[in-house]
């Protein structure tokens, strides 16, 4: 059973203030979080979070498409980096 709609999305409360502070500062900042369970809210779009995966804080650049997902989805705890071959990375 899914979460009741009347409760709204879950997010650890302390993240809201930090996100707001990071947005207002406008500096090149990464917000380190352990809260993998928190839902990505629209006000997080454009910010970069470092989401802990048990070993490292993996940078998560929040985009509109990620709203509604959990932070933990973008910071896997078991990683296979694979082969580079012809794969490319875009600098945002």
């Amino acid at each position: 059973m899914g979460r009741s709609v009347w409760k709204g999305p879950f997010v650890d409360g302390y993240m809201l203030g930090k996100a707001e502070a990071a947005r207002e500062s406008g500096r090149n900042e990464i917000i380190k979080i352990w809260s993998r369970r928190s839902t990505i809210l629209p006000q997080f779009v454009g910010l970069v979070f470092g989401v802990y995966n048990g070993k490292k804080f993996l940078p998560v650049q929040v985009t509109e498409n990620m709203v509604g997902h959990k932070f933990g989805e973008f910071s896997p705890t078991r990683t296979f980096t694979g082969h580079t071959a012809d794969k490319k990375a875009k600098r945002n």
Partner: peptide, 10 residues
């Protein structure tokens, strides 16, 4: 980048 540690910590 500068790092902001969240209050909730671990």
């Amino acid at each position: 980048p500068a790092e902001i540690i969240t209050e909730g910590g671990a």
